[in-house]
Computed example of a mutant assay.
Amino acid sequence: MTSYKIASWNINSVRARPHIIEQLVRDEDPDIICLQETKAHNDVFPAKWAHELGYEHHALNGQKMHHGVGILSKVPMEEHLKHDWQDNGEARHVGVRLPGGLRLENVYIPAGGDIPDRDQNPKFGQKLDFLERMTRWSEKLKEPTIIVGDFNIAPLECDVWSHKQLLNVVSHTPIEVETLKRFQDSHDWVDLGRQFIPAPERCYTWWSYRNRDHTVNDRGRRLDHMWASPELAGQVTAHRVLEPARSWEKPSDHIPLILEVSV
């Protein structure tokens, strides 16, 4: 059996926040770090810095100033795949195969703008279409897989600070929740966050920068996720959300998630 500790984090610019990634490494020492919203094209990604941290292997799909995903690993990775689920060339996915046969997919689903109507807001339609393309991919998936990332959807009523007040707010609208559920059902994905932190227990991964102190009113949402193929979920031995990271120096508005799995 091979064991992996895998971290996932929307870092909101890898070059602006290397110090908190370094703190994550000091505190948790993950084998693999999946980053979203790196905001760095591949040719300016700080690969030397990552190597010095102990992550010699990189799978990158970057874009100048926007989006971008990357996987940093202490172990070799194969078959770097980049799906264009946005269908416009945006860098929002990278996937690899790890030793032991495990597939690891890292995705940054679009936020979807502010208006939950595809006619008034094309970004919202793009988000729903992105999820539908993921679903078509997922229906054909045959390998044991873990998919992680910023899904930009809080699916359960207890995944937001106020279900009633956020029903018409992008990230928690019924159509987004329904679309994400179709994706989940397409492969019988197991939501590891709620496997280890059962509903209705509080679990948030994002707090807006608009709140100077996110702890005062705690208006969080669970936008970040780690899901596993059903045959793999029983081999996941731990899952945690690192909420203290939201208070680190110059933080991301998201916090890291960590899982441990044996394959």
Score class of each variant (00 low, 15 high):
Ser162Ala: 10
Val96Leu: 10
Gly101Tyr: 12
Asp185Gly: 03
Leu81Tyr: 12
Thr135Met: 05
Gln165Val: 08
Gly193Phe: 03
Glu132Leu: 11
Asn106Cys: 12
Asp150Leu: 01
Arg92Leu: 06
Glu157Thr: 07
Pro122Thr: 14
Arg133Phe: 11
Pro116Leu: 12
Leu128Arg: 13
Ile147Trp: 00
Glu78Ile: 02
Gly89Cys: 10
Lys164Asp: 14
Asp119Ser: 11
Pro99Gly: 03
Cys158Asp: 13
Trp137Tyr: 12
Trp189Ser: 04
Lys123Phe: 11
Phe124Thr: 06
Trp137Ser: 05
Ala199Leu: 09
Val96Asp: 08
Asp129Ala: 13
Lys142Gly: 03
Arg133Trp: 11
Ala154Phe: 15
Glu176Gln: 12
Ser171Arg: 13
Asn168Glu: 15
Val107Ala: 04
Ala111Val: 02
Lys82Tyr: 07
Asp150His: 05
Asp191Ala: 13
Leu156Lys: 05
Leu102Gln: 01
Asp191Ser: 13
His80Asp: 01
Gly149Cys: 05
Arg202Gly: 05
Gly89Pro: 05
Asp114Tyr: 09
Ile175Tyr: 09
Gly125Leu: 11
Glu78Asp: 05
Arg194Ser: 04
Met134Cys: 04
Gly89Asp: 06
Leu166Ser: 12
Asp191Trp: 08
Arg103Tyr: 02
Asp119Val: 14
Arg97Trp: 03
Gly113His: 13
Ala154Val: 15
Asp119Cys: 09
Pro99Phe: 02
Cys158Gly: 11
Phe151Cys: 03
Val170Arg: 14
Val190Ala: 05
Gln120Leu: 12
Asp129Ile: 00
Arg133Gly: 11
Glu78His: 01
Ile153Gln: 01
Arg103Ser: 00
Gln184Phe: 15
Ile175His: 14
Asp84Trp: 08
Asp188His: 15
Pro198Trp: 07
Glu90Asp: 11
Val148Pro: 00
Arg118Asn: 12
Val107Ser: 02
Arg182Ser: 10
Arg182Cys: 11
Leu166Cys: 12
Glu176Asp: 13
Ser138Asp: 03
Trp161Gly: 00
Gly193His: 02
Asp119Lys: 10
Glu78Leu: 03
Glu78Met: 03
Trp161His: 06
Arg133Leu: 12
Leu81Gly: 11
Leu141Ile: 09
Pro99His: 02
Gly149Met: 02
Glu79Asn: 08
Gly193Asn: 07
Ile115Asn: 10
Leu128Val: 15
Pro116Asn: 11
Thr173Val: 10
Glu78Arg: 03
Pro155Gln: 04
Leu98Tyr: 12
Ser162His: 11
Asp117Val: 08
Asp119Phe: 04
Gln86Phe: 15
Tyr108Leu: 10
Ser138Phe: 02
Arg118Ile: 15
Arg182Trp: 13
Val107Cys: 04
Thr179Ser: 13
Phe124Lys: 10
Asn121Met: 03
Arg194Tyr: 07
Leu104Arg: 00
Leu141Arg: 07
Pro200Gly: 13
Pro144Thr: 10
Ala154Gln: 12
Leu104Ser: 03
Asn88Pro: 00
Arg103Gly: 00
Arg202Ile: 13
Pro99Gln: 04
Val148Ser: 03
Trp85Asp: 07
Leu102Lys: 01
Glu78Thr: 01
Asn152Gly: 01
Lys123Pro: 09
Lys140Glu: 13
Ile197Ser: 07
Met134Ile: 02
Leu192Thr: 05
Glu201Asp: 10
Gln120Asp: 06
Trp85Leu: 09
Leu98Asn: 08
